[in-house]
Design a protein around this nucleic acid. Structure first.
Ligand code: FES
Ligand code: FES
Lengths: 145, 145
DNA sequence: GGAACTGATACTATATTAATATCAGTTAAA
DNA sequence: TTTAACTGATATTAATATAGTATCAGTTCC
């Protein structure tokens, strides 16, 4: 079972690059090279991020995309939902047998608990937190201004 | 994000039927009709369950398959792993940037925690526990002998 | 005007999942 | 002893999701 698709993975990485360059427009070409993401695939993905209102773009020479939110407000959960849909264990297991009694279905309760845990965990992980971890690991910590 | 594939879903349902008929051989046809699972698809799936040693079969007329384990010892986790492979969040996110320092990667730690929680939860849900829930819901509880 | 960009969209390739089809061999029982 | 009800094994197709490519129009900066 794979939880993150490549698209989500790429989106996270693109946002990391953008978060590290806040306030500046970065071209798709640059991101593509820096993160080793196929150019055209990235282009499409960036347009989705624009629709999700996580980044904004500027056309023309010297244009590109720029992150438009506080990186701490962008969670991996949002990205998973945006690109892969909500975490859902099974549309509804055992339809025939149980679903007549959904409200009382114990299984359903347990499954929803799992979903909640997964969502809560992915909600904790943000672009901001990831970036800080990256910086710590790579020794690129910038002194607070 | 879909956690259970149809195959896993079908397998669980087939095992529920078999658990409800412990000690008897049930034909694929019967299971197929009872659980509304495409016959040939079910056939293949049952052969996998045999390989996983969760059921045994008997050929010929009056043959079929029979559950060969205590239903409480068959967890949804085992089935997911058998049919879909281990739960894995991402083969390894951010390869380029972090994987040079895997041991210290905070992200990796968080992700592994999520995996553990999901696995632990699915490990708690067994064919036995599901069947009991079903019986309670449907009012088919058999008095203990 | 031309190079460096994004917007929009259409297309192809690959992988995974889901479903079917076929035929040989086994067993029970009429 | 034949036949209907079964599984074993395997091949094939269909449907869907994911991943990646290509093209062209329009914008902006120099
Ligand atoms: S699985 Fe559908 S209500 Fe329980
Ligand atoms: S994601 Fe690979 S080590 Fe952190």
């Amino acid at each position: 079972m794979k939880v993150l698709t490549k698209k989500t993975d790429y989106a996270i990485r693109a946002l990391l690059t953008l978060a590290a360059s806040r306030g500046r427009y970065v071209s798709a070409k640059t991101i593509s090279e820096e993160q080793d993401i196929p150019y055209q695939f990235l282009r499409g993905l960036l347009q989705e991020l624009i629709r999700l209102e996580l980044i904004v773009s500027k056309e023309g020479a010297q244009g590109g995309v720029m992150i438009s939110r506080d990186p701490d407000e962008i969670s991996v959960k949002q990205l998973i939902e945006g690109f892969q849909g909500k975490v859902q264990v099974s549309e509804c297991m055992f339809r025939k047998q149980i679903c007549a009694n959904r409200a009382n279905c114990v299984l359903r309760h347990e499954i929803m608990r799992i979903e909640q845990v997964v969502n809560a965990e992915f909600d904790k992980i943000t672009i901001g937190s990831l970036l800080r971890n990256l910086e710590v690991i790579q020794g690129h910590v910038q002194p607070a201004v």
